[in-house]
């Protein structure tokens, strides 16, 4: 709903069979952010003219074989990779994070939680750095947000030789309410408490907690809205999708 000549971002939400957070994302973008959003079925391609892409949570293809592995090979992912290459902002949440790792768009992999159990709870995330289009203008280094997580396979792992790079690319780390990042604030065993990590270029973000579930006071708070707003503002600013 851009006005005064400001162009607003166009969003796409990818839908796989088994996705179950796709409508939550559509709701967050369309009804809360008030932006145009297209739902893209897994057999189709993401339109060329979108600025932001969300790969939602859920159990794509039932998570058979390995979480996210079948979705990573579905037809729609060819267009997602093309978008990644040209700089479109892409966020994968929960199962979407797993899909992006399986597709090779993000480093590392997600293993079963260290507790071996599915966990659904609110977590605190410390913003790890400045200079990311997923946070700039809305969150700065050290800022803490509280948003929900819900997963059984969120234990992020990178091999030792990629750990330093992953550390640099970390955008969110599991912390306490004051931003303290320690073993006790790690809900799933992720290496270096990594909750969200970008690719080297910085235009693809994967995170296990759900920003789209924290966009309204009535149901989970509004901390997650910062991430969607940052994407929305920065995608158009950089003109990545144009």
């Amino acid at each position: 709903m851009g006005s005064g000549g400001v162009v607003s971002a166009r969003w796409a939400v990818v839908v796989f069979p088994g996705s179950n957070c796709d409508q939550d994302f559509v709701h967050a973008v369309r009804d809360v952010l008030e932006r145009e959003v297209v739902e893209v079925w897994h057999k189709d391609a993401v339109p060329e003219d979108v600025d932001c892409i969300a790969i939602p949570g859920g159990f794509s293809y039932g998570d058979y074989l390995r979480a996210g592995s079948l979705a990573a090979m579905s037809p729609v992912m060819r267009s997602v990779k093309e978008h990644a290459a040209k700089g479109t902002l892409i966020i994968g949440v929960c199962n979407g994070f797993q899909v992006l790792c399986e597709a090779g768009l993000l480093p590392g992999a997600l293993m079963k939680n260290a507790s071996l159990r599915f966990r659904c709870m609110d977590v605190y995330l410390r913003t790890a750095r400045n200079g990311s289009p997923f946070t700039d203008g809305f969150l700065k280094e050290g800022d803490v947000i509280r948003i929900p997580m819900a997963h059984g396979y969120g234990n992020y792992y990178v091999p030792a030789d990629q750990a330093e790079a992953a550390g640099r690319q970390t955008l969110f780390a599991y912390s306490d309410a004051d931003g303290g990042v320690e073993v006790g604030t790690n809900p799933n065993g992720s290496v270096m408490n990594i909750a969200g990590v970008t690719n080297e270029r910085g235009n693809v973000l994967g995170m296990m907690p759900h920003p789209e579930r924290a966009v309204e006071y009535l149901v989970g708070g509004t901390d997650g809205l910062n991430i969607l707003k940052a994407m929305d503002a920065n995608a158009v600013k950089t003109g990545a999708g144009a």
């Binding site: 159990r117 599915f118 659904c120 789209e212 579930r213 309204e216 009535l218 989970g220």
Partner: peptide, 13 residues
């Protein structure tokens, strides 16, 4: 309750 995703659909008040 932690083993159940009690917030999916984002309607849980």
């Amino acid at each position: 309750h932690e083993q159940y995703d009690h917030q999916v659909q984002t309607n849980t008040v």
